[in-house]
């Protein structure tokens, strides 16, 4: 097994900067938030173990996604039997689409940052409280004076607006 060398800052930085897109990729294949975080940790360990296999200058995202995909398959073999999950065919199709779509991740990320400032005030407030402060939708809804279901609707509309805004900015449609 190759030695785990954390003294290579660029490699450690690559892993750190890829955490959001890796967990997003894993989530698409495992429809379970908690399991996705466990698999992300396993993937990070695997990336460090296989560091010597990575050739600097090549596509780190594609390499890391491949390792994450194998970690997903491993999880499905070992622990996934207890849970409801997608078929192997769908997981493979999602992995392939995810890898293709990751190429424009940075463009969509920049678009999202721009779109956040365009949200109506109430939608922006619920997005901030849900994602930045980590409050539950029910707590936010109660403090804003409406029922939990109305809070879910407001958050849904905010996500929809962000999604449409990102699509407009990245596709020009």
């Amino acid at each position: 097994m190759p030695a785990c060398d954390l003294s290579h800052p660029s490699f450690a930085e690559l892993i750190a900067s890829h955490q959001p897109r890796l967990v997003g990729y894993i989530r698409t294949m495992i429809a379970d938030e908690h399991a996705a975080k466990d698999i992300l940790q396993d993937t990070n360990m695997a990336l460090l173990r296989k560091k010597a296999d990575f050739e600097p200058g090549t596509n780190f995202t594609a390499w890391a996604f491949r390792i994450a995909y194998f970690e997903v398959l491993s999880w499905r073999r070992n622990k996934g039997r207890e849970k409801v999950q997608f078929s192997s065919e769908l997981v493979e199709a999602l992995a392939e689409s995810g890898e293709q779509m990751a190429k424009n991740y940075d463009t969509r990320l920049e678009a999202l940052k721009s779109c956040l400032s365009k949200l109506p005030d109430r939608q922006k407030a619920i997005v901030q409280r849900r994602y930045l402060s980590g409050e539950s939708v029910q707590t936010i809804a109660e403090s804003m004076g409406f029922k939990a279901n109305a809070g879910s609707q407001l958050l849904h509309r905010a996500r929809q607006n962000l999604f449409q805004c990102i699509t407009r900015l990245t596709t020009g449609s």
């Binding site: 955490q19 959001p20 897109r21 967990v23 997003g24 989530r27 698409t28 999602l94 689409s97 995810g98 779509m101 991740y105 969509r108 990320l109 999202l112 940052k113 956040l116 997005v127 994602y131 930045l132 996500r159 962000l162 999604f163 990102i166 699509t167």
Partner: peptide, 18 residues
């Protein structure tokens, strides 16, 4: 589905978005 998962993850995890 993939893009919506990605958006949720960006909002939840990405430091620059936060």
């Amino acid at each position: 589905y993939i893009l919506r998962q990605e958006l949720h993850t960006m909002l939840e995890v990405d430091k620059s978005v936060r």
